[in-house]
Design a binder for these strands. Structure first.
Length: 424
DNA sequence: TTATCCCGCCAGTGT
DNA sequence: ACACTGGCGGGATAA
């Protein structure tokens, strides 16, 4: 029943590999992370630094991960190596890697091995996601060769809990686990063999990430709170406990997507509730001409999260050693904005040079930015938008809006009422 | 208090 | 059998 060990006693930790970062064993990696120096006192020494969850955050870890691998000469990444160099347990690497793969930055090559695609893989992945999302909404599953065994498969989520609620439909998703670019497709006709244990896959971080992103790519509203997202991705049959779990996961995902600058944390327009805004391109794009909601690559760094500490997340176990002098050290954070260009050439043989905006966490090196590059960025983004639009008829987009429209409305009002009621 | 979300147990999967 | 993966949620920080 309980699971988890109530006490922090470091059990045998089955996850073999890197236990608690071999104490002193400083993890190589020393990426400069232009960290305004200002190390200021204690920190490095070792010993009792108060435990600070902020330094162990997935977002920071992701930034470090990217800073560590985002370079031309990197193409293969070993999980063990990553874990060691970043000074974290392998488990955490899985988290990072799963969402990175969902947005096309990585591809799983084999056990313990991933191939680095870089930010250049994002556009294609987003495009893929968006199309798939639209397709799904259009009603017909557009089932490829495979697509589920047969009979009802939809709404397979919600293991326990009543899922036969009145409203019906909504489970629109629950698609396949087909990653955008992966598909090792080794075996000539291997398809249609999987499934069976997909139940687990359906709850995977990777899939959740994709669905979360789809939300941004297809929905109208600019901001989405994690509660809403969870509700959306879960369906009507909300089951408090499921919701809570889902939200926990969304926090994880949001953190890494934030560090990738694909989303940003903000406030919900009316309500003050914290929510997230999409920063990546490939947004909806109604009929009006472009609406790049993308900060002009100026200070896009939200200044939250102190990026640029040191690259490792070693020790500092969760022990509650008092926090005497937790020097917050603002630590620079900006200076990030690295605009990266690349020649389209991935998967879908479309060619257009997509350019990237604010991506890259502060600290990532490799910056070849130039104002003119930024300028060009605008233009290419437009190309991207056009291309995306061309890909499917407008009316479909409208249908989509309608579909989500009523959801959004419902939630909005529901939420309003809820907050109104509980406000006291 | 509520919002976040790290940590690592341990159950599925893979080999 | 062992090694990988990664769902999951307790409960400790942050705000």
């Amino acid at each position: 029943m309980d699971a988890r060990a109530p006490s922090p006693s470091p059990g045998p930790s089955s996850s073999g590999a890197e236990p608690y970062a071999a104490a002193a064993q400083a993890p190589l990696v020393q990426v400069p992370v232009q960290g305004a120096g200002a190390g200021s006192g204690s920190a490095r020494g070792c010993r009792h630094h108060a435990y600070s969850r902020k330094q162990k955050s997935l977002g920071l870890l992701c930034s470090n991960f990217v800073a560590l691998y985002d370079r031309e000469d990197v193409e293969s990444i070993g999980l063990d190596d990553a874990a060691k160099r970043l000074g974290v347990e392998r488990r955490r690497i899985y988290d990072i890697v799963n969402v990175l793969e969902s947005v096309g930055i990585l591809v799983r090559r084999a056990k313990n091995r991933y191939t680095w695609l870089g930010f250049g893989g994002v556009p294609a992945a987003l495009k893929e996601l968006k199309e798939r999302a639209l397709r799904e909404m259009a009603g017909s599953p557009v089932l490829p060769p495979m697509e589920e065994s047969s009979t009802a498969n939809l709404s397979d989520d919600e293991d326990d809990e009543k899922m036969g609620d009145a409203d019906a439909d909504e489970d629109a998703e629950s698609e396949k686990l087909s990653q955008s670019v992966d598909n090792a497709s080794d075996k000539p006709e291997a398809h249609s063999c999987r499934l069976r244990s997909d139940h687990r896959k359906e709850k995977s971080l990777g899939l959740l990430t994709q669905n979360f992103v789809k939300l941004f790519l297809t929905m109208e509203v600019e901001t989405v709170s994690l509660d809403e997202a969870a509700r959306l991705l879960l369906g009507e049959g909300h089951a408090e406990s499921n919701m809570r779990t889902k939200v926990r996961r969304l926090y994880d995902i949001a953190n890494v997507l934030s560090s990738l600058n694909l989303i940003e944390k903000t406030q919900q327009a009316d309500t003050r509730k914290p929510a997230f805004r999409w920063l990546g391109q490939a947004k909806r794009k109604q009929e009006n001409n472009l609406t790049i909601d993308l900060p002009p690559s100026s200070k896009a760094m939200p200044s939250k999260r102190a990026f640029g500490t040191d690259l490792t997340n070693i020790d500092n176990k969760r022990g509650k050693l008092d926090s005497a002098v937790e020097n917050k050290a603002k630590l620079m954070q900006g200076a990030g904005n690295i605009v990266k260009t690349f020649e389209g050439k991935l998967g879908q043989g479309h060619r257009t040079d997509f350019v990237y905006g604010p991506f890259h966490p502060a600290g990532a090196k490799k910056q070849e930015t130039d104002d003119h590059t930024v300028k060009q960025e605008r233009k290419t983004i437009q190309d991207w938008e056009n291309l995306a639009v061309t890909f499917r008829p407008q009316y479909q987009n409208q249908a989509l809006n309608d579909l989500f429209g009523h959801y959004v409305e419902a939630w909005k009002s529901w939420y309003r009422d809820l907050t109104r009621e509980t406000t006291s």
